[in-house]
Simulated assay, not measured.
Amino acid sequence: MAAALVTLFVLTFAVALSTTAADPDLLQDLCVADLNSTMKVNGYPCRKRAIVDDFFSDSLAKPGAINGCRGYQTTLACVQKIPGLNTLGVSLTRIDFAPGGLNPPHTHSRATEMVHVLNGALTVGFITANGSNLFSRPIETG
């Protein structure tokens, strides 16, 4: 009888401990950036309330004014313009090129770049991390 009571106590304690130690919300739906906060750790702190405009931007719909010197213009759609992207690790960039424009060599640490040509043609490519391989090809509209 004593062994059964001890077993019951241990099981009750284990169940109670596991339910209090568990994360009450296993999935964080969103963390809209509080852009006014001075603290920045792995993104911005979450705002208490989200609004519909936190998840939309028309900034990529408009062509950028191309600088004649560089031959291209970048328009960012990042957490500063779309606060709902906070902590998702997602950003988008629109690049408008003048004929003959060149995007200088650059890196994306722990990130992926995808290219979609809206109009015209573009030669794109990348070099492997050790510099031993170049992958390049022209892409056209669409």
Rank of each mutant, 00 (worst) to 15 (best):
T123R: 09
I139Q: 00
E113G: 01
T38I: 00
I95C: 03
R49G: 07
E140K: 14
K40A: 05
N67E: 07
C69G: 10
A121L: 03
M114I: 07
I51Y: 09
I127V: 07
G101Q: 10
A33I: 11
L85T: 12
L122F: 07
T12L: 03
R47E: 13
G84E: 04
N42T: 07
T7L: 06
D25P: 01
S109Q: 09
N119M: 11
F97N: 08
N119W: 03
T7M: 03
K62M: 11
P45S: 15
Q80G: 11
T112G: 02
T123L: 02
L102D: 09
A129V: 03
S109C: 08
P63D: 12
P63C: 15
D54M: 09
F135L: 00
I139M: 11
I66Y: 11
F135N: 08
G64D: 06
L118A: 12
G100E: 10
L134R: 01
H108F: 11
N42L: 09
C31N: 02
C78M: 08
D29L: 11
E140T: 14
R137Y: 05
E140Y: 12
T74S: 11
P105I: 09
I127Y: 01
K62F: 14
C31H: 03
N36R: 15
D23F: 05
C69D: 03
I66S: 06
G142I: 11
V90Q: 10
E113W: 06
P99A: 14
V79P: 09
P105C: 14
A2H: 09
N130T: 05
P45F: 10
A65E: 12
V117S: 04
A121D: 09
T74A: 13
M1Q: 08
A50S: 15
N103S: 01
L30K: 12
V15E: 07
T93K: 01
G131L: 08
P99L: 14
K62A: 13
N130M: 06
L85E: 05
V32N: 11
L27Y: 02
M1G: 07
T112Q: 04
G120E: 13
A98P: 06
T75K: 04
L11N: 13
V41R: 03
L102P: 00
C46V: 05
Y72P: 05
A98W: 02
M114P: 03
A14E: 00
S109I: 04
L35W: 12
T74I: 10
K48C: 04
D54G: 08
F13W: 13
D54N: 14
N133E: 04
L85K: 07
L60H: 14
G64F: 00
T7R: 08
G120Y: 00
V124I: 15
L35G: 15
P138W: 00
A22L: 13
T87R: 09
I82A: 04
G131P: 12
F9A: 11
T75R: 07
P99K: 02
S57E: 15
I66R: 05
G84V: 04
V10E: 08
D29N: 06
G125S: 06
R94K: 15
D29W: 14
L122H: 15
A16Y: 15
P138D: 13
K62H: 15
L92D: 03
K40H: 13
H108V: 05
V15D: 01
